[in-house]
């Protein structure tokens, strides 16, 4: 994908897409979610998307708070349910471009059921899951993506639960576009999100983001800059993996577009079947007399 990167950074001004009245934002210094938000808005800009037609639905959490900063139609809904709200909105309003912003807890724990069914249904939606391995908003509890042995406020002995590979999960559930990127590579992240936004079905994009203030502090991962650099050392080819002493994430986490499938888009398929039924009914009605009969 890197070959298609066009450097539009010069003419992209993130402030054109933010609600200035909401500044200053509430994210902690160095939080990866802000980087992800910038990458999303950059992709929106590059695609020339109409802000009036952009709908952003977000759940509850630090990730969920991001929608409020975007100058678009924004919906901050209940914990774990943004994909379900977005499903209704996108089905009712196919003219809108619906994007979901969700956290690892929002998307994979309380909202896990909605995720797998959204993947299966393949309605046109872009789901941006900001994975910081932790419940940031509630003060740093263990999440379904916390690496084993990591310390959180509810795993004082070190996490002993295996974590989800969200992309593998989404792909297995049928998502027609799955990709992962890190906040370390903003242009690449922007490219991936752009590809997800342009995808004609359900696109799942996982962003490896850092909760610097809580997760980083608890696990002594250093400054936010050090945490971002750690992403780089950890995500290089696995042959070099052994040279890294304290892997930030213990799993093998490939990045980029991880899977793409050509599947019928749910909304279009439904509307087509409904139109065919209406045409059929109209033809039958014409042949019959009592039109008011039921």
């Amino acid at each position: 994908m890197s070959s298609t990167i066009v450097d539009s950074a010069a003419e992209f001004d993130v402030r054109d897409y933010l609600r200035k009245e909401m500044m200053p934002h509430f994210l902690c210094p160095g939080c990866g979610h802000g980087i992800a938000l910038r990458a999303l808005l950059w992709a929106v800009h590059e695609l020339g998307m109409d802000k009036d037609k952009l709908a952003v639905v977000s759940g509850i959490g630090c990730a969920g708070r991001l929608s409020a900063y975007i100058d678009a139609n924004t919906f901050h809904v209940t914990h774990g349910r943004p994909l379900a709200y977005a499903t209704g909105l996108a089905l009712a309003r196919p003219d809108l471009h619906v994007v979901v912003i969700t956290g690892d807890g929002d998307c994979l724990a309380i909202g896990g059921n909605h995720l797998i069914h959204a993947c299966r249904r393949n309605l046109k939606l872009t789901c941006l899951m900001l994975n910081n391995e932790v419940y940031g908003m509630t003060g740093g509890q263990v999440s379904p993506t916390t690496s084993e042995t990591r310390l959180t406020t509810t795993t004082p002995l070190g996490n002993s639960e295996p974590n989800f590979d969200a992309c593998a999960l989404a792909a297995a559930a049928g998502a027609s576009f799955v990709g992962r990127e890190v906040t370390h590579h903003v242009p690449k992240l922007k490219e991936l999100i752009r590809a997800g936004l342009a995808h004609p079905g359900f696109a799942f994009v996982e962003v490896l983001s850092d909760c610097t203030e809580i997760f980083g502090r608890k696990n002594e991962l250093g400054s936010s800059a050090e945490m971002v650099l750690r992403q780089k050392s950890e995500l290089r080819p696995s042959a070099y993996r052994d040279t890294v002493n304290t892997p930030f994430r213990s799993n093998d986490l490939p990045t980029g577009v991880l899977s793409k499938r050509d599947r019928p888009e749910y909304g279009a398929a439904y509307r087509k079947a409904a139109a065919a039924q209406r045409a059929d009914a109209a033809a039958k009605d014409g042949a019959r007399t009592g039109k008011g009969e039921f």
Binding site: V57, F75, V77, R81
Partner: peptide
């Protein structure tokens, strides 16, 4: 649309209504 559970159903309904339907 038949959703995956009742929570998803009411959420989708509110989502559709936020879209004006």
């Amino acid at each position: 649309v038949q959703m995956e559970d009742e929570i998803a159903s009411i959420a989708a309904v509110i989502g559709a209504s936020m879209g004006g339907v």
